[in-house]
């Protein structure tokens, strides 16, 4: 049955003493990842995105990462770092769909103004930049989202907006999501299942 085939499958994933991690995430499903600071949550996300050399295997729709060209893999399995970096001056330079209807809808969903698109990024708040980084990520229409504390700089209203937008996106496109969060309440709200790392990077709890 195609519907039970996992969108993202991790088998024995390990990086620098962290892991091994086994997980299967179904289309439309969200897995929360937690653990103390320095446990290696970010490194695991980077390993899944194939940004660092790692052990074990990642599969997208049962196709191993190795059969994808690395850039194609990362377009499909997109990683949002906790502190997003920018290479051009304004948000518009980073957003391909800024002027498309879908782009407008998403801006509105995150309470961002279109006039903001042409302001220098340095003049925007860290919360505004964090939400723009999520839009930049969704622009590439990934099938898997790897989100590293995507609401760390946001107030309660905007946290709710981000959570809703990600949930909508995953439901609409049958995308899988790995969400790293320190907030137990958020993990319960966004995730269908949870996974915790201990201080030495080992998987301790699953639910």
């Amino acid at each position: 049955m195609a519907s039970t085939r996992p969108r993202l499958l991790l088998r024995g994933l390990s990086i620098g003493g962290i892991g091994p991690l086994d997980a299967a995430i179904a289309p439309g499903e969200c897995l929360a990842l937690s653990g103390p600071s320095g446990a290696g949550k970010t490194r695991l996300l980077r390993a899944i995105a194939d940004l660092d050399p790692h052990g074990g295997e990642c599969r997208l729709d049962d196709r191993p990462a190795g059969v994808f060209a690395a850039p194609a893999w990362r377009r499909a399995v997109a990683y949002l770092p906790a502190e997003p970096a920018w290479w051009a001056d304004t948000p518009r330079d980073h957003l391909r769909t800024a002027d498309a209807p879908a782009g407008h809808d998403r801006l509105a969903a995150l309470d961002l103004e279109t006039t903001m698109l042409d302001r220098p990024l340095t003049q925007l708040s860290s919360g505004q930049r964090q939400r723009l980084a999520l839009l930049r990520l969704l622009d590439g229409q990934p099938q898997v989202l790897l989100l590293d504390e995507p609401t760390a700089n946001l107030d309660a209203d905007n946290i709710a907006r981000v959570e809703a937008l990600v949930a909508d996106y995953c439901a609409e496109r049958d995308a899988a999501c790995v969400w790293v969060s320190h907030d137990p309440g958020q993990r319960r709200r966004v995730a269908h299942r949870q996974l915790a790392l201990d201080g030495r990077g080992r998987v301790t709890a699953c639910s």
């Binding site: 940004l51 850039p71 590439g140």
Partner: peptide
């Protein structure tokens, strides 16, 4: 110095050549 920017581009699917072009 700009490792974060290079990796931001890689993470969004840029090739090494595109990410380091500037």
């Amino acid at each position: 110095r700009e490792a974060a920017v290079i990796e931001a581009r890689l993470a969004l699917g840029a090739t090494a050549g595109q990410a380091v072009a500037d």
